[in-house]
Computed example of a mutant assay.
Amino acid sequence: MKVNQLIAKGTIKPSVFLLVMMLCLNFAYGQKSTQKKSEDNYNRPLTPVRGYYSQLESFSPAPKSPNEEVDKKKFITVQAAIDKRLSIKPIYLSDVSADDFKLPDPPANSSAQTRAELNYLVEVEKNRTEEDIRRCHYMSGIFYDLNIHPGDSTYEQNRKNLFYIGRSIGTWFNPQTLPLTADLMANVWRDANYFIWALKYKYARIRPYMLEPRLKNLEQAGAPAYPTGTATDSYIQAYIFQELAPQFTDVFVKDAYDMSQSRETIEVHFPSDVEGSRILARQFVNKLFQNKKFLKDFEKVKEEWALKGKENLTDKGGI
């Protein structure tokens, strides 16, 4: 029987019906309002560019002139490699495309900005020390391999790599103590991996040493330069961890900054690759915090940090 018929018969009083309807509407609105408020709370702006990154951006990224031959140079990738990389689909951002990320185009090869960036990398090489080289090579090995699974000999170390950014905040900051955090960050890495590679193939930017013969690069790259995976992943981790422990924001961001700069020291990336990655990371994390599945997992991680995110100072052996 319809509601208006029940009201006509006196089964339901109009005042009661209106009260129930108002409560239902308020509840529904409240749920949407709470969700929207939650999303807005995590919609962070990008901090302003600074230092030499800002200085380099004062140069024009436009081609020196139309039809410059050097601007035709692109990093060529065979289609089979592209298909393989992009076969690992996102877990959270499955309804997002690479075009949803608004990155600045990388500077043209013939541009004044690219020339300034190459000049900067030449100066970096002049000043880098053996310790710089050792440190940067070490950082090159810090990444999460999506092809390593439980039971593999390197599984534990692979999971530990997810905690390199922020490693100094406590002895509890590890995958053994925070397994839900490790699972979340592994899923995030998978999502990021997809979009990083999609954008690399979209822009197909060549590496700096392919333009500047004076550079003595310490690695050979097998993929396009823009954006850099190391920098993007590092800033993504920093931005997520800062939501869990905002008091350590400076630590997380400094770790990401150091990881990013290591790619310039090794001379496989332009500074604009790194800055583009920082922009991508901020947009990526903002999109994660608009995703219901991610938010559900993130709430569990927050509970894990509230319970386990502290040192165990119990006296076990006595003095």
Score class of each variant (00 low, 15 high):
residue 3 V to W: 08
residue 14 P to W: 01
residue 14 P to L: 10
residue 16 V to G: 00
residue 25 L to D: 00
residue 25 L to H: 03
residue 26 N to S: 13
residue 26 N to A: 15
residue 38 S to N: 14
residue 41 N to S: 15
residue 42 Y to C: 11
residue 49 V to W: 01
residue 50 R to T: 14
residue 51 G to F: 08
residue 52 Y to E: 13
residue 58 S to I: 00
residue 62 A to K: 14
residue 62 A to H: 12
residue 77 T to F: 02
residue 78 V to A: 11
residue 80 A to V: 12
residue 85 R to W: 08
residue 90 P to G: 06
residue 100 D to Y: 07
residue 102 K to R: 13
residue 103 L to N: 11
residue 104 P to I: 01
residue 105 D to R: 11
residue 109 N to G: 08
residue 115 R to L: 11
residue 118 L to Q: 02
residue 124 V to Y: 01
residue 129 T to W: 09
residue 136 C to T: 14
residue 141 G to W: 08
residue 142 I to R: 12
residue 145 D to G: 01
residue 148 I to N: 01
residue 150 P to H: 07
residue 154 T to N: 13
residue 154 T to D: 13
residue 155 Y to K: 07
residue 155 Y to C: 07
residue 155 Y to E: 06
residue 156 E to R: 11
residue 160 K to W: 00
residue 175 P to C: 03
residue 179 P to C: 02
residue 182 A to N: 08
residue 184 L to H: 04
residue 186 A to E: 14
residue 195 F to S: 08
residue 195 F to L: 09
residue 197 W to P: 02
residue 201 Y to M: 04
residue 202 K to H: 15
residue 203 Y to P: 08
residue 203 Y to Q: 03
residue 203 Y to G: 03
residue 205 R to K: 14
residue 205 R to F: 08
residue 206 I to D: 09
residue 207 R to G: 10
residue 207 R to C: 10
residue 209 Y to Q: 12
residue 216 K to F: 03
residue 220 Q to F: 12
residue 222 G to E: 08
residue 223 A to G: 00
residue 225 A to I: 02
residue 226 Y to C: 07
residue 229 G to D: 06
residue 230 T to V: 12
residue 235 Y to V: 03
residue 236 I to G: 10
residue 244 L to C: 06
residue 246 P to V: 03
residue 254 K to Y: 10
residue 258 D to F: 02
residue 258 D to K: 08
residue 259 M to W: 00
residue 261 Q to F: 13
residue 266 I to S: 10
residue 267 E to N: 14
residue 269 H to R: 08
residue 274 V to H: 01
residue 275 E to V: 04
residue 276 G to D: 05
residue 278 R to G: 04
residue 278 R to M: 09
residue 283 Q to E: 13
residue 284 F to M: 04
residue 285 V to D: 04
residue 290 Q to S: 12
residue 291 N to A: 06
residue 291 N to V: 05
residue 294 F to T: 06
residue 296 K to T: 14
residue 298 F to D: 05
residue 303 E to I: 11
residue 304 E to M: 03
residue 309 G to F: 02
residue 314 T to S: 05
residue 314 T to N: 03
residue 316 K to Y: 13
residue 318 G to A: 08
